[in-house]
Amino acid sequence: MLEDLYPQAVQIGISSTDFWSMTFDEIMVQVEANKKRHENGLREKAMFDYSQQRMAIFAFNDPKNFPKFEEAYPFLAAIEKEVQQGLSEEEQHRQDMQRDQEIMMKNIQAIQATKERNKNKQ
C-alpha cells in the first residue's frame, strides 16, 4: 500500500527519506498540510494579481491619486513590525549572553585568583 503512495507523496513534497519512516496517518497529515499550503499560496498569488491589476487601472485612470505602497499593501507594515520586534529580541538575547559571559569570566578569574592564593600559602 505504501509503495503505491510513494510516487504521489514525493510529488507533493514529502522527501523520499522521510516517507519511509512515516506511518500512514503521518503521511496523510503531511499530504493534507502540503495541499493546504499549496492552496494558500494560490490564494495569495490571486490576491496579489488582483491587487496589481486594480492598481494598474487606478494608475492609468487617476495617476495623481495613486495610492502609496503602504496604503496598497497595509499588511506589510504589520509584517515589518514583527520582523523588527524579532530583531530587537535577538539583540536583547545577544546582550544577555554577553553579560552572562562577562559574569562567567569574572567568576573564573576569581576562582583562579583564589587557587593562586591557596597555592602561595602552601
Rank of each mutant, 00 (worst) to 15 (best):
L2C: 04
L2H: 10
E3A: 09
L5V: 02
L5F: 08
P7Y: 02
Q8E: 09
G13M: 09
G13I: 10
I14F: 02
S15E: 15
S15L: 13
S16R: 15
T17C: 03
T17D: 15
W20Y: 09
S21T: 13
M22K: 10
T23S: 15
F24V: 10
D25N: 05
D25R: 05
I27G: 01
M28W: 06
V29F: 10
V31R: 09
A33V: 10
N34R: 13
N34Y: 03
K35C: 05
K36V: 04
R37G: 00
H38P: 00
G41D: 09
L42H: 13
L42E: 15
R43T: 09
K45F: 04
A46I: 04
M47V: 05
M47N: 09
D49K: 09
D49I: 03
D49C: 02
Y50T: 08
S51F: 02
Q52Y: 10
Q53R: 12
R54W: 05
M55V: 10
I57P: 00
A59M: 06
F60Y: 14
F60V: 06
N61Q: 11
D62S: 14
P63Y: 06
N65Q: 09
F66Y: 15
K68Y: 03
K68H: 02
K68E: 06
F69W: 05
E71H: 08
P74V: 01
P74R: 02
F75D: 12
L76Y: 08
A77L: 14
A77F: 02
A78E: 15
A78N: 12
A78L: 11
A78F: 05
I79M: 10
I79R: 10
I79L: 12
E80S: 07
E82I: 03
V83H: 12
Q85M: 08
L87P: 00
E89T: 04
E90N: 05
E90H: 05
E90P: 00
D96K: 11
M97G: 03
M97I: 11
D100Q: 13
Q101H: 03
I103V: 14
M104N: 11
M105R: 14
M105D: 14
I108C: 05
I108A: 12
I108F: 07
Q109L: 11
Q109Y: 07
Q109G: 01
Q112K: 10
A113N: 13
T114K: 12
E116Q: 11
R117W: 07
N120G: 00
N120K: 13
N120F: 07
K121N: 10
K121V: 12
